[in-house]
Design a protein around this nucleic acid. Structure first.
Lengths: 194, 194
DNA sequence: GTCTATAATCGGATAGAC
DNA sequence: GTCTATCCGATTATAGAC
């Protein structure tokens, strides 16, 4: 249930966002969305064509929010290593997982091009953005020149996404934090010895 | 559908394994299992108490198989770096994802202790096993002594699990391979400069 | 815009015949 | 052991009243 200051479509989108995050697409029913939003069936089908349409609106918003939050962690300034470090160490609701990344395990998201597109674009953007920062580090002579920007970027994003998997399996954020520290301990010397 | 040489319980377990891998727990219905196994409802409920019971049998088998396959990649001999490299570079059905790791995104697997246990144990075993190898590398003076075995192990496993996420998002194994190469490029100098 | 009614199908399972 | 029948609630809507 949401504040009465939100319109019905807003409440439906927010409810869908939370349920997609927690239960995924196949695990989220229109009925559950309606209950969470405090809206009736007729209301939902008036504003949205159906479950896929509503999910698309929800996923797009979540993706946009993630980009904005991520860009904020990069904008802190400092060296390339410091900005990547800031991204990796930023506070996260680790046990909830990544609201975008978790959708990749959903068969109906992956099967349909429309729902997969925003997920793909967001993770691709993230890798590209980190690759840019690594390239800046290379340009500044901060990193060993054996590093390949897009490969380091993929390793950074994968460590985060995989960290969520380890944390959720064990029921504790510790494994996520350990993976991040491990990656940073490998990246740090590359930033110092050059 | 499976060969007639498999018993009905066997076919039900194998069908469940495949469906759990592809669609997860919430996305897998008893009806779908029965159809895939070529078994009737009565047959399924005769051999198994219900969906959770059958899923437990399936998950346990998948976990055991994964341990055996993984241990095989470690047994190849060579330096610690080479064994970790062999694990990371081993052939995988990347776009299908990890049959164990993907279960961590399933709300009903994570909520219930019985179904989560084999997932947790398997990923924990994997991290422990890789940490042992890193420790051997440290003992041999192969790695820089700033590396913390359990942290490197977590980073290695997370890179694989997260690599699946990136690959599935983009519909291509490239991002998985890039992440693995990125991690290895960070680990390699640590193994040479010491 | 929102509500209630209706409906076809699925989900997860039990009962009892064979 | 396997089959069919049956059950009850959930899923994913559509129709039409208000």
């Amino acid at each position: 249930m949401y504040s009465g200051f939100m319109s019905t479509p807003e409440r439906l989108i927010e409810a869908t966002r939370e349920l997609l995050w927690e239960r995924g697409y196949v695990g989220t029913s229109p009925k559950a969305i309606q209950q969470q939003a405090g809206a009736g069936q007729g209301s939902m089908y008036h504003h949205f064509a159906g479950k896929p349409d509503l999910a698309l609106a929800a996923i797009r918003r979540t993706a946009e929010e993630m980009r904005a939050a991520t860009e904020a962690t990069f904008g802190g300034g400092g060296t390339a290593y410091e900005r990547i470090s800031a991204y990796l160490l930023r506070e996260r609701d680790v046990l909830r997982g990544c609201p975008v990344g978790r959708l990749t395990m959903d068969p109906e998201i992956i099967a349909g091009a429309e729902l997969r597109a925003p997920v793909d674009e967001t993770l691709d953007w993230l890798r590209g953005r980190i690759a840019e920062i690594v390239q800046e580090g290379l340009d500044q002579g901060e990193f060993a020149d054996t590093l390949v920007p897009r490969e380091i970027a993929a390793a950074v994003v994968a460590t985060v996404q995989g960290g969520y998997v380890l944390a959720r399996a064990s029921g504790s954020p510790d494994a996520f934090d350990a993976g991040v520290r491990g990656l940073l301990s490998l990246l740090a010397p590359a930033a110092k010895t050059q």
